Simulated assay, not measured.
Amino acid sequence: MTAPTVSVVRPPYKVTGSRVLRAEWAKFWSLRSSWITLGVALLLLVAIGAIASATYSPDAVAGDGPPGPGGGGASDAVSLALTGLTFASLAIGVLGVLVSAGEYSTGMIRSTLAAVPRRLPVLWSKSAVFGAVALVITTVAALAAFTLGGLGLDGETIALSLGDDGVLRSLVGAGLYLGLVAVWGVALGALVRSTAGGIAILVGVLLILGGLATLLPDSWEDTVTPYLPGNAGSAVYSLHEASDSLSPGAGLAVFVGWVALTLAGAAYRLARTDA
């Protein structure tokens, strides 16, 4: 007697935004480079800030301008706590490039796009996952650096507390800036589809472009320099607004514009060209 055939009805699976988001979340945390690079960024931000505060000496600081990044004068507790932010931004940005461009170098992007034929949800999910992770982790790191730094600045005239005007805004702004750097790194990697190329652009724009702008005529330099990505980003977490820089709100708007422009370019290339 022949056994009856049992047909198995599989439930229909649909590619949704939430499922793509969960897949990118799992993919991100499964990579060893994610844990290592995030740890490096956290260590750089906290350790360098704490060391800078602990070794602070009023006699070593010159200038009469307002304190803070770009202020040209004496340091304050916030700028000391965020001394390692430039190094942390490089680590975060490099990891962002790896998150997207790394799939092109390994060929995994073909499997990813085969699973998500609409393509663009992949870019949005990568950006959202890493941007959110970087925002939370670096904001906590900035608060930790400020708290540890305050122990070394006890009794100094530049010592501040979280309740002082602008302090919490600056520290949260540092985390917000680094979260945007993370998204920007993802967008650069997806745009150029090369790890080396994406990292080179990231480093060049954040660290070198501002210095090259000083070669421009003075009238051009004063007009252009505040709107460069690195300078606009630094305005987001500055405690005191310098005369030649943007306000925190304007700096945030400009930097978001740079990130959005890069994301738009990456989305266009992803949608229009083959992997």
Rank of each mutant, 00 (worst) to 15 (best):
V6R: 13
S7Q: 15
S7M: 14
V8Y: 15
V9T: 15
P11E: 15
A26Q: 13
F28W: 07
W29Q: 06
R32C: 04
R32M: 06
S33M: 06
W35H: 14
I36R: 05
L38A: 13
L38M: 15
A47E: 08
G49V: 09
I51T: 08
A54G: 10
Y56E: 03
D59G: 02
P67R: 01
G68Q: 02
G68A: 02
G68L: 01
G72N: 06
A74P: 05
A77T: 07
V78F: 05
V78W: 05
A81E: 12
A91Y: 02
A91C: 08
G93K: 09
S105V: 14
M108I: 06
I109L: 03
S111L: 10
L113R: 02
L113I: 00
L113H: 01
R119D: 00
L120H: 00
P121R: 02
P121H: 01
P121M: 00
A128L: 09
A134R: 13
L135R: 09
A142G: 15
T147K: 11
G149I: 09
T157M: 03
A159G: 08
A159R: 09
L160V: 05
G163C: 11
D164W: 08
L171D: 11
L171K: 10
A174E: 05
L178K: 10
L180D: 13
A182Q: 08
A182K: 08
V183Q: 06
W184L: 15
G185C: 06
A187V: 02
V192W: 09
G204E: 03
G204H: 04
L207A: 06
I208A: 13
A213C: 05
L216E: 11
E221V: 04
T223K: 02
T223Q: 12
V224I: 15
Y227R: 13
L228P: 09
L228E: 04
P229H: 07
N231V: 14
S234W: 01
A235K: 01
A235D: 10
E241V: 15
S243E: 11
S247E: 02
A250L: 04
V256D: 13
L263H: 10
A267M: 03
T273E: 14
D274N: 04
